[in-house]
Design a binder for these strands. Structure first.
Lengths: 191, 191
DNA sequence: GGCGGGAGCGGATAGTCATCCGCTTCACTC
DNA sequence: GAGTGAAGCGGATGACTATCCGCTCCCGCC
């Protein structure tokens, strides 16, 4: 079993999985590095075990930030309930997606290279995100604020720029600008 | 001196620089790999020399594709002369930027990770691209087709999705869709 | 509570990366 | 055309990555 899934027939497996995650989280919070050797030593586990649980650095990083990624997806319905659809989209992009990208060391990097290699993310993360985007899209189309016919994939691509925000710069402003650009791009025709 | 610049006081430097580029080009065309060790051997040069000339894989890849990158920048005035500004932008994005990203092995990857580390590209490539985008932007603002007040940086970010096109998929269509989305995002208000 | 089978462990190992510094070779001067 | 200073070379080296397979120890069963 790979990719951080938790279906451990054996107790030691679950324990190791946990230890590795803890060590990796510490390493990420501290230095932002994910040296498999260092993490193995820190977790008192063989290197092989780390590789068995997480085939790539990206898989490991995403597992550490799993909670965060899930939150990004799960907050969508909440936002749609609380705000008008177009406001919801803006808030989501700037306060949730951009926020986690800038806040969690290595997450943006991991996503950038994870999606690089094969366009596929471990652990359904890609599908989950697509679903979230689709929900946003549908709500806005239904409200007449966004023109129909757009695919979630396209919108995801449009959001790609969020992975290049500068954590040390004014990223809130940049994210807002990008959200604005995206919004204009999606908006229902007015001419 | 790093970054592929060519200001060699010494003849052997220039020679080595050339040899490395040739070896790297061959390797990229062949396997798409840029192992510094392999390239050093192939170029009959010490590994250290390769690292001295090109501090990172990205720098090397960009140096190999320097001609291509320059073309992307230099074609802008030509396009602006030949087409209406909005048409020029669309053609540029799909037929030039996207085209080279999909066509040159490793270029998109290199850009994705080069811009990752520090938001800066070797060899003024970033500034050059910004300039090209700025020119496109100005022409369109002047023509009244794009609303004023947008920064080239923002537009670059909006184009970021081009680096995730799938070379094995229908990337022309996807690029066109993204250009369309971007276009709507930039367009002068019509309400 | 002892046993058998196999899932899972872990570290030795082969391969690769990136650095560093003593030596070479070039350009320039006289 | 020999001398000199230093720019530049290159490969030995230490660190890191990723794999592979013999052994451990967990689970389920009797």
């Amino acid at each position: 079993m790979t990719t951080g899934s938790v279906s451990p027939r054996r107790a030691d497996t679950r324990r190791n999985h946990e230890r590795i995650l803890i060590a990796a989280a510490a390493s990420l919070a501290d230095t932002g590095e994910v040296s498999f050797n260092a993490i193995a030593k820190q977790a008192e586990v063989g290197v092989g075990t780390v590789y068995r649980h997480f085939p790539t650095p990206e898989a490991l990083i995403l597992a550490v930030y799993r909670r965060e990624v899930r939150h990004i997806v799960e907050v969508v319905p909440v936002l749609l309930e609380k705000h008008a659809p177009e406001e919801a989209l803006r808030v989501w992009v700037t306060d949730h997606v951009a926020h986690y990208m800038m806040t969690k060391k290595g997450l943006a990097d991991a996503l950038r290279t994870a999606t690089a290699a094969r366009g596929e993310l471990p652990g359904d993360a890609y599908e989950d995100m697509l679903g979230a985007v689709a929900a946003m899209l549908e709500a806005n189309v239904a409200a007449g604020t966004v023109r129909p016919g757009l695919t979630p994939e396209l919108v995801m691509r449009g959001m790609g720029g969020l992975l290049w925000l500068d954590p040390n710069g004014d990223w809130r402003r940049d994210a807002a600008d990008l959200a604005d650009l995206l919004w204009h791009g999606l908006a229902a025709q007015r001419d």
